[in-house]
Amino acid sequence: MATALRIDNLHKSFKTGFLLQKKTILKGISLHVDQGEIFGYLGPNGAGKTTTIKCVMGLIFPEDGDIKLFDLPHLSLKAKERVGFLPENPYFYDYLTASEFLRFYSQLFVIPELEKEKRIEDILQLVDMKKARNLQLRKFSRGMLQRIGLAQALLNNPDIVILDEPLGGLDPLGRKEIRDILVRLREEGKTVFLSSHILQDIEMICDRVAIIVNGEIVNQGYLQELISERILFTEIIISGLGKSDLEELGESLSTPGGKILLKIHDEKKINSVFRLIQDRGGKIHSLTPRTETLEDLFVGMVKKK
């Protein structure tokens, strides 16, 4: 599959403080995004996600490393024609109305004059902002700004959309709406690259992810492959037995209603639990094997650092 975005060995540091000490933010980031996938760039706050994205968009210049968009140098206009970008916490010219704003930005692309208005209409429709078209952006709520931000990113019908924390600061409904739009973009064959520090968002829609911690990629790949199918432990909810009977088998916890939640780490012990319950006339209410989640992986990675 063709590569939409390739980042090779990216290094970036900032000079901070009074003495202009060098602080290294990105320590050799490499990743590649295939065409047509939703790629999640995952990491805790301050890991360097925004810094990476700013390098890709040419807002800051890395000290070292190479960035290619569709095998073109990322700063070439040819590459930029094919990219849409939504920054973190977007803010736009607050004195413009939504449609004035989109009209202004549409002039920065090579779009035939006749097509412009139709394009703007379609996009306002897509992000469900038709009613707000004549409202000044200063009167927009957080969610509305996010959607008009998405609209400006899609104006040029880009092949790749790069979004920095697109779901940040939105309520659950707003998040779902944006997620739906992103999935629709993938269906149209576009590539989506989004960063997030919220796992659920990524887990729900991403094909592949890269995890960045402290300026380094600690893991990268298909979600299913990163998260092993290995069963971590099994949770069994039981009644009719005393807590003391279960001591040797695993951790037990009393739950409301006289039930006991038993957490078994050793698979072999599950059968002994069944036998014990049969012997004592107890009852099994539920049995849940817990496999690894992205969250476990994530927390593990962050801890290791």
């Binding site: 807002l59 930029k80 920054p87 803010y91 010219y93 930005y105 920065l108």
Partner: peptide, 14 residues
């Protein structure tokens, strides 16, 4: 300061 330049410079302009 208001970061409007982020989206503007990401467009195909020099």
């Amino acid at each position: 300061d208001k970061k409007t330049i982020y989206t503007l410079l990401s467009k195909p302009i020099h």
